[in-house]
C-alpha cells in the first residue's frame, strides 16, 4: 500500500498498572545494533520513583494476602501470555543486537523460569518454615513473610531473561517491586509490562521505571519505605558509596547472577517470623 505511515510505539513508564510519561518530561533514545534510532523512551525522575514506591506500597499487603495458589496461577498466566507473544519479543531482541538463536533461547528460558517460580508459590514456605522444639508448653513456629517493597536494578543483559529472573523470585512470595531498567533493555521491560497488565497481575505489584540507574539509585537506597534493594544489574559506572545509605532503615541488599534459579533466591526476599503459641488444655 502506498503512503503507509509508520506507527512507532511510545515507550512509557509502568506505574500502578498505567503507562504514564515521566513527570520530568525527559526521554532518552535507544538505538539498534546499526546505530539507528529505534525509540525514544521515557526517562524516569525521582518523583516518578516516589510515585512508583507509593503504588508498590499500597499494592503490597493485598498482594501478599492473596493465596499462594492464586499468586502461582497469576505467574503462570504471565508465562502463558509471554508464550503467545514470542514473535514480538524475538523481533525486539534481534533489533538490539541479539542473534536469532540466542534470542529464541532467551525467550524460552524466560518463560520456563516464570513457570518454575510459579510452581514454588505454595511450596517454599513448607521448606523454609519450621516447627521448632522448645522446652516449655508452647508451639513454636517459624514462618516466612515477604520483605515488602523491593527496589530492583534490572540487569541490562540478557535484557529479557535478566528482568524476569529478578522479578519472579520477589513477587512470588508477595513482595511488590519497583524495577529500574536501563538503556536497550528498557524496550523489553516495557513490553513485558504490556504482558503483565493482561495477566491479572494487580496494579502496583510490578512497577517499571526506564531511565538512568545512577540517577535513581540514591533515591532508591535512601527511601525509607523501600525494604530491600536488588542490585544485580548494577553497572560498573555506578557509584557504590550510595549503598551505605541502605543502613538508614536496614534494607536488605541482594545481588545475584542471572544464571541462578533456586529456592534461595526466593528466600532473599523473605523475613522469618517466629511465633510462640501456648499449648492449651
Amino acid at each position: 500500500m502506498a503512503g503507509k505511515i509508520p506507527i512507532a510505539k511510545t515507550y512509557k513508564l509502568f506505574i500502578d498498572g498505567a503507562f504514564p510519561r515521566s513527570e520530568s518530561g525527559r526521554t532518552f533514545s535507544v538505538n539498534n545494533s546499526e546505530g539507528e534510532l529505534i525509540a525514544n523512551v521515557s526517562q524516569a525522575s525521582r518523583k516518578d520513583f516516589r510515585e512508583a514506591v507509593r503504588a508498590a506500597r499500597s499494592a503490597q499487603s493485598p498482594w501478599a494476602s492473596r493465596t499462594a495458589y492464586n499468586r502461582g496461577q497469576i505467574l503462570y498466566r504471565v508465562a502463558e501470555m509471554l508464550e503467545s507473544r514470542k514473535p514480538e519479543f524475538l523481533e525486539l531482541l534481534k533489533s538490539i543486537g541479539v542473534n536469532n538463536r540466542v534470542a529464541t533461547r532467551e525467550i524460552e528460558d524466560s518463560i520456563q523460569r516464570l513457570v518454575w517460580y510459579a510452581g514454588w508459590s505454595d511450596k517454599y514456605s513448607q521448606l523454609l518454615g519450621s516447627v521448632n522444639p522448645v522446652s516449655g508448653p508452647y508451639f513454636n513456629f517459624t514462618v516466612p513473610e515477604p520483605t515488602g517493597v523491593v527496589g530492583i536494578i534490572a540487569p541490562t543483559e540478557p535484557a529479557m531473561l535478566g528482568f524476569i529472573s529478578r522479578i519472579a523470585p520477589a513477587i512470588v512470595s508477595g513482595n511488590t517491586v519497583v524495577v529500574v531498567s536501563e538503556a536497550q533493555s528498557s524496550l523489553t521491560s516495557v513490553t513485558i509490562a504490556e504482558v503483565l497488565v493482561t495477566s491479572d497481575v494487580p496494579a502496583g505489584v510490578v512497577n517499571i521505571l526506564t531511565g538512568d540507574q545512577t540517577d535513581l539509585l540514591p533515591w532508591m537506597v535512601g527511601h525509607l519505605d523501600v525494604n530491600a534493594v536488588d542490585i544485580s544489574g548494577i553497572s560498573p559506572k555506578t557509584d557504590l558509596t550510595h549503598l551505605e545509605e541502605v543502613a538508614s532503615n536496614v534494607k536488605r541488599v541482594v545481588s545475584r547472577s542471572v544464571d541462578e534459579e533456586s529456592l534461595e533466591l526466593i528466600s532473599d526476599f523473605l523475613e522469618m517470623k517466629t511465633v510462640w503459641h501456648p499449648i492449651g488444655r
Binding site: R50, W219, G222, V226
Partner: peptide
C-alpha cells in the same frame, strides 16, 4: 532528612 519517608515512621 532529604530522603523519602514511609508510613512505618
Amino acid at each position: 532528612s532529604g530522603s523519602y519517608s514511609g508510613p512505618d515512621y
